[in-house]
């Protein structure tokens, strides 16, 4: 298909979205990324049965945490697509990039001495 998607998207491979842990998402934000989206298989088609459903619940939980700390839950999203839907992969990458552009960079200000 030779589809292109925004080069700002960094793909982190996991064996199943069920591997995506609350701390994994939080650490991504701590490392300075402006947004995170989890790309899981279509609901009902998880090779491990419920991995993508669990990931969605965790994403919802972390959205709440991001709201609590004042960064906003919109910086995190879960999308579903099958391995053969390259078109959707590129489309979601585009959609999420546009959403994050509108939200702007993560509102993190540098302070001296912060590790």
């Amino acid at each position: 298909m030779r589809l292109s998607y925004p080069s700002n998207v960094k793909v982190v491979k996991v064996p199943c979205t069920g591997r995506v842990d609350v701390l994994l998402i939080l650490r991504a934000f701590e490392s300075g990324v402006d947004g995170v989206y989890v790309a899981g298989c279509l609901e009902g088609e998880c090779h491990f049965l419920r991995g993508n459903l669990r990931a969605r619940r965790r994403v919802e939980y972390v959205k709440g945490l991001l709201e609590e700390v004042g960064l906003g839950g919109d910086r995190l999203e879960m999308f579903n697509m099958s391995a053969s839907q390259g078109q959707r992969f590129a489309q979601f990458a585009q959609e999420m990039t546009e959403r994050i552009r509108l939200l702007g960079p993560l509102p993190v200000r540098k302070a001296p001495g912060n590790g």
Binding site: G70, R109, A111
Partner: peptide, 22 residues
């Protein structure tokens, strides 16, 4: 340990946002 990680992460994200030293 995991909840410690989550709370610590929340604190760091919140204070980074405020530009605080912590």
């Amino acid at each position: 340990e995991r909840e410690v990680g989550v709370l610590a992460s929340e604190l760091r994200l919140c204070w980074k946002k405020e530009g605080e030293t912590f």
